[in-house]
Amino acid sequence: MAIRTAISASEIIEKVSLLCMDANFNVNQDIIAALRDSYETEVSPVAKEVFAELLENAKIAHECQMPICQDTGVAVVFVEIGEGVEITGGRLCDAINEGVRKGYREGYLRKSIVRDPLDRVNTGDNTPALIHTEFVPENHLKITVMAKGGGCENMSRIAMLTPADGREGVINFVVETVRIAKANPCPPIIVGVGIGGTFDYAALLAKKALLRPLGIKHHESDTVKLEAEMLDRINNLGIGAQGLGGWVTAMAVHIERYPCHIASLPVAVNIECHAHRVKTVILGSH
């Protein structure tokens, strides 16, 4: 008989609210390490100072429980649902939205969502969250909250390349995206790249690529090579921290690939600022 794991909606609400606050107040260690490395690598004195400021900012944010960035983002929530998991006392998406509402209210986080892209009236509670769900064999509920800033999201791009464009075409598109973005997305950035799938799936892959902690290598050696090649070309652009000129424009390029149609080569580039806010919790694991 299959093992069932019951997880209550109230636990989900509580945990999501804490993730929203934790993500916005406490910079992850991988980012701190990358900022320190960048400080060492950077040759421009002006850009070097930016890295020092960002490290100081992380310290203040943590100590004062203040958001790292005033743009506390749209809550993008990735959920892995174990096939044996049962949600009790409410519905999953309602619980996630209630958690976002609570976290943004109690954490004094900014409410940045409008109810309609054209009438632009603020919903006042930062909902709805953008929820991506996936069924997994593990008997758990894994919730990842990404507080995604609008400025860097705006600099993201997607292209439907042709198979003939190949590897070089993909690299060129990614580098061009960063070149066009210039100082706007708050460099040093992290570049999420989705290659393959379909129009929509490539964009999701690009966002998911950002979830991999900095410093963790991709499991495919060719992707590792491709990431290094793109990072090199991006950092040769000279944009630098805050666009003030320098050698570190991006701290990492993360790629995810997926099978695609014989006619297609979709490429999506999701730009992430240095204020990369991602936190995860696993519920119901044994």
Partner: peptide, 22 residues
């Protein structure tokens, strides 16, 4: 160009960095 985060009680303002000028 800024949209600050809400101030906690006792503070004049929340976090308040610049937004994209473009």
């Amino acid at each position: 160009y800024v949209g600050p985060s809400p101030a906690r009680p006792g503070r004049p303002i929340g976090s308040c960095g610049p937004t994209t000028s473009q």
